[in-house]
Design a protein around this nucleic acid. Sequence first.
DNA 1: TGATAAAATAGACAATGTGTAGAATTATAG
DNA 2: CTATAATTCTACACATTGTCTATTTTATCA
Lengths: 224, 224
Amino acid sequence: MPKPQPVNHPPSDLPPEASERRPDRRAQRTRQQLRDALIALILERGYDAVRVEDITARANLGRATFYLHYRDKEALLLDSIRQTVDDLMAQVSAFAPPHLEAGSEAAAAWLQRAIALVFDHAAENATLYRVILRGEGTAAISQRIHAMICQAVITYLDAHRPQQAPPVPAEVLANYFAGALLGLLTWWLEHGMPYPPQSMAEMFYRLFYEGIGHLTLPPISPER
Amino acid sequence: MPKPQPVNHPPSDLPPEASERRPDRRAQRTRQQLRDALIALILERGYDAVRVEDITARANLGRATFYLHYRDKEALLLDSIRQTVDDLMAQVSAFAPPHLEAGSEAAAAWLQRAIALVFDHAAENATLYRVILRGEGTAAISQRIHAMICQAVITYLDAHRPQQAPPVPAEVLANYFAGALLGLLTWWLEHGMPYPPQSMAEMFYRLFYEGIGHLTLPPISPER
DNA sequence: TGATAAAATAGACAATGTGTAGAATTATAG
DNA sequence: CTATAATTCTACACATTGTCTATTTTATCA
């Protein structure tokens, strides 16, 4: 009777397909059940109110089984998030031409497309996105997502901005962009996605590109 | 020897100055020490890693004393936040004219001023704002702040928008605004406030009003 | 199919943190 | 000064975590 040593603890070590050992269907199924149970319970009760035993009960597993696969609750959540974020990042960078001409229409089209892709991906993984964007679990998670978007914007600006000095610092622009995108995305998911992803992407892009000055507000007052 | 019944448990019942009883200087001082200790510790270790004993140790108080004033860690944090948010809201609405003419310059100036006020207030209460905006503690807190800003924007739009149908739903605009503002605010605080509050407010207002189309990006591509 | 190794199970366990209670001490208000 | 109320210390019951062991179940491969 061998000791039940940790199966593969985190699958973060190696991608399972590249590993030399087949991953046993039971373990795969168990991990999937744990992931699903966790995000379902978080949406029901909130992260802090979910105990390990709740997760395993929902997944119809023994409590000890949990620790064969994950160190703790947080590791389980991080694993779920990592999978989904990696998937999105791969999709976004998949169709990115290596060198876009600065200020070209192609660059703008790419940006529009990238935004639409984010909304599409969020719609497909709505439950997990809601958990992430709510900041449930470690608050550092949504911060990391925000930082990733900022980094992407700054990289984009470095590549596609004309050489003239920018009117606002790149970091300011990036954080403005990331905050607006995540804010809109969060509202959209929490309200049952009342508009199609394409519409959301277009509205966001237009707000970001044109601002609202020509729509509802008077010009900037000269004083101050 | 009377039982040490909860002193005033939460000061959420009545504002202390309106109450009929002076609640003893010691209690006031104790609560202030607890609040300061909590936010300091959160910034050092993160909310989850702070135990009640850590708070009381930092505040030079006995652990039991904590429970005379607050039910748990979360109640203490909520009390700190409520105080500060109430203060900001009072400031913002203090100088708001009851009826601004729709589309007037006065309305725009008011909006600019309100934004500047937020940055000012954040600078004055930087440590607490960082805790709030990081989403430390209950994630619902930063969501509530976000929702408050959205509500303010929608109210503003209802009052000052021309009767023509808006090109984007008010909720979309509001969440875009709130996300962008909080995103920018968070970055600014976490990076040591590298620009003065006035500059931040102006940059934000210009981005929101003018967009970035005329600066760095090509026009919206016709396809899609 | 059958042998074998891996996975899952139940239960016990120490460790840690929480919230409550009682009795003694001390600072404050009147 | 005196009475009152806040604070402190100690102890305790409780819940949850993470680990470990022995045992049973099940997937995989020969």
